[in-house]
Write a protein that binds this DNA or RNA. Structure first.
Length: 271
DNA sequence: AGGTTGACCTGGACGC
DNA sequence: TGCGTCCAGGTCAACC
């Protein structure tokens, strides 16, 4: 479901609610696909651990854990398309498609619910911890950003979506930042000019920062940890607007497929 | 190795 | 109302 701003909003909300809690018990659904580490390893790592902090790396929610004997570990939650993390009182009925329940020291439960099952749960116990597959888009310098695309022959839109290059950007924010930078989604990444790379770096960081401020984009049913919808969907200039008028020039927005994903752009403003 | 495509799932929207 | 089709914010394995 969520991209970087939504994951960041959710991670902040969950952090505020569960930081410092001890995990007393763990239940898992047994749906193998959901568990990237084995269920036994997840249960073993989580049980008895204390949640030190909840944060975002790429599109992944990372829970830093403290365990007995000073052993550090991390619980990773990737929400896929439809995953949700809920903090509930135990008497509240379990929603359908619940795949994991962590019972906390104060009696509440942290629940992972995911109808479509594209989400993934795993644990990391290696030193160094999880750093994500690619570069962090919110803090990368313009210079480092430009280097990422050197010599790449794939479309810039596909490059933005490739998590091992830059992690956290998904379909909405790729289209929105390319529109704001005035760049064709199909343009080869390695052929962007220095000026285009500078505009894209700036547009992407502005779009992400603004979306985080607005609590993310609520398309269909996305809500944060408090059940509150984000508001950035009101700022979408191209995403979800195929055939409608460009807000800058009035041309009809075009819909194409790039890297297997629906892509909306303005044929006049994006060259 | 880099790049592309289809598979993985469920549910909601839409058309007939 | 009911059924079929299409589409969805994300990966990832398998192919070229």
């Amino acid at each position: 479901m969520p991209e970087l701003p939504e994951v960041e909003t959710i991670a902040k909300g969950v952090d505020a609610r569960v930081r410092g809690q001890r995990i007393e018990r763990v239940w898992t659904s047994g749906k193998p696909q959901t568990f990237k580490s084995s269920e036994a390893e997840i249960v073993e790592t989580l049980r008895g651990a204390r949640i030190e902090r909840v944060r975002r790396v790429g599109k992944t929610i990372v829970m830093d854990l403290a365990r007995r004997g000073n052993k550090a570990a991390q619980f990773l939650v990737h929400l896929g398309m439809t995953g949700r993390l809920l903090v509930s009182q135990p008497e509240v009925e379990l929603p359908p498609h619940t795949h994991a329940v962590l019972s906390l020291g104060d009696g509440r439960e942290l629940r992972f619910v995911d109808p479509r099952r594209f989400g993934r749960l795993s644990v990391v116990t290696e030193a160094g911890g999880y750093t994500g597959p690619g570069a962090e888009p919110t803090t990368i310098s313009a210079e480092e950003f430009s280097k990422l695309f050197k010599g790449r022959r794939l479309a810039i839109k596909a490059a933005l979506l490739n998590q091992s290059i830059l992690h956290g950007v998904g379909n909405i924010y790729a289209d929105e930042s390319l529109f704001r930078a005035g760049i064709r989604p199909r343009k080869q990444a390695g052929r962007l000019t220095g000026a285009e790379l500078a505009r894209l770096h700036s547009a992407l960081q502005q779009v992400l920062a603004h979306a985080i401020e607005m609590g993310g984009s609520s398309v269909s049913d996305y809500v944060d940890a408090d059940g509150v919808r984000g508001f950035f969907q009101l700022e979408h200039k191209v995403y979800g607007r195929a055939g409608e008028d460009c807000l800058d020039c009035g041309s009809a927005l075009k819909k194409i497929v790039v890297g297997g994903r629906t892509t909306i752009y303005c044929p006049k403003c994006q060259r």
